[in-house]
């Protein structure tokens, strides 16, 4: 045994089947959203109807897992009712917490459902102690999901200055832009990440192969990347594409390479830094993926708590193109 506090493992549930898989694999909490623009993973074939949410809540409850509901996009003027309905349905379903980003939505929950536990979504982009204290003071936020831009040392410093719990991403896709502050998808597709909950919509993605078997990936009207024969082509996301500048006439990853976040080797540091909950990204991933990743993290956290060195090699096989990064968490050289 050791002096670490057992962290909560927060796992993605894009579908009812993934929810059950995550719970069965040892998730302490699962997070999900409704089938509309009220959450930041608004993809076709994903998410929950109100009935499915109720069934999910019951399933999770029976197995001792919490259910967190993401209502973390930003309602544009004139469309607030959809977000209001999502909140009401979530509260009436008895979800353990609602994850919010918009101040209007947070204010609505606080006013209409004063007892409802609130978490601050990563989409709110609260990256300093003052910003987090602001949300805690105004909306009684109980937990903040930190942006993926801070080092472990900075997380520790924030922990000592805020009155709420910290949830940090440990595994999965890593967008390069500050969450809740990116309109790149809207810029090329007319669909907004903040307002519609969509990043790089599949309907506007195109793969084109030329006679030499070079593959071009496009989003909307723009080429995001070009892969030589045999290269592993990634899904076109603007912040992971290759571009040219005046000084760099060979295509280069101007923002970031197609890599996944994997903080498994930093888990003990994160736990010591005061992180209450470890979050796995991936509501858009398959049930099998969720099962493997959650299972591996369950074992890793249990190993650490028992003072055993965790085995994590299998997680590497699940990262994007087998390339992984510790992102900002590992140190300032990443920036």
């Amino acid at each position: 045994m050791n002096d670490l506090t057992r962290p909560e493992l927060v796992c993605p549930a894009g579908t009812p089947a993934s929810l059950r898989a995550a719970v069965d694999a040892g998730a302490d909490a699962v997070y999900c959203g409704f089938q509309n623009a009220t959450n930041a993973r608004n993809f076709a074939g994903l998410n929950f109807t109100p009935d499915e949410l109720a069934e999910g809540a019951e399933y999770a409850g029976q197995k001792g897992a919490k259910l967190l509901l993401a209502i973390n996009s930003f309602p544009p003027a004139g469309k607030f009712d959809l977000w209001r309905q999502a909140v009401d349905t979530g509260v009436q379903t008895g979800v353990d917490a609602i994850i919010v980003a918009d101040m209007g939505v947070a204010d609505y929950v606080r006013t209409r459902w004063p007892e409802q536990r609130l978490h601050l979504s990563v989409q709110a982009g609260a990256s300093s102690a003052e910003a987090i204290r602001f949300y805690c003071q105004e909306f009684d936020i109980k937990r903040v999901v930190l942006p993926r831009i801070l080092t472990v040392a900075e997380i520790k410093a924030i922990h000592d200055e805020i009155p709420c719990e910290i949830e940090a991403f440990v595994f999965g896709n890593i967008g390069m832009m500050a969450e809740g502050r990116c309109s790149l998808t809207n810029y090329v597709t007319g669909v907004s990440t903040n307002m519609d909950g969509v990043c790089s919509p599949a309907g506007r993605v195109e793969y084109k192969e030329d006679t030499q078997k070079n593959l071009t990936t496009r989003l909307g009207d723009f080429t995001v990347d070009c892969f030589a024969c045999g290269e592993n082509a990634g899904y076109p996301t603007i912040c992971k594409g290759r571009y040219l500048t005046e000084d760099r006439r060979e295509p280069y990853y101007a923002f970031e390479e197609p890599v996944s976040l994997n903080l498994t080797s930093l888990l003990p540091d994160l736990m010591k830094a005061g992180v209450t909950a470890l979050k796995i990204e991936g509501r858009q991933r398959s049930r099998a993926y969720v099962k493997s990743v959650v299972g591996a993290f369950r074992k890793a956290v249990d190993d650490l708590m028992a003072g055993r060195p965790p085995e994590l090699t299998e997680l590497l096989n699940l990262t994007e193109g087998n390339k992984q990064t510790e992102g900002a968490f590992g140190g300032k050289r990443w920036r």
Binding site: M177, A178, R181, Y187, D247, A254, R335
Partner: peptide
């Protein structure tokens, strides 16, 4: 020009093989 995104990383520095610091 419209601001489309903010990041923790400096892409000017990156284009010149440097980091923000």
């Amino acid at each position: 020009r419209i601001s489309l995104a903010l990041s923790a990383r400096c892409y000017h520095a990156r284009a010149h093989d440097r980091v923000k610091d």
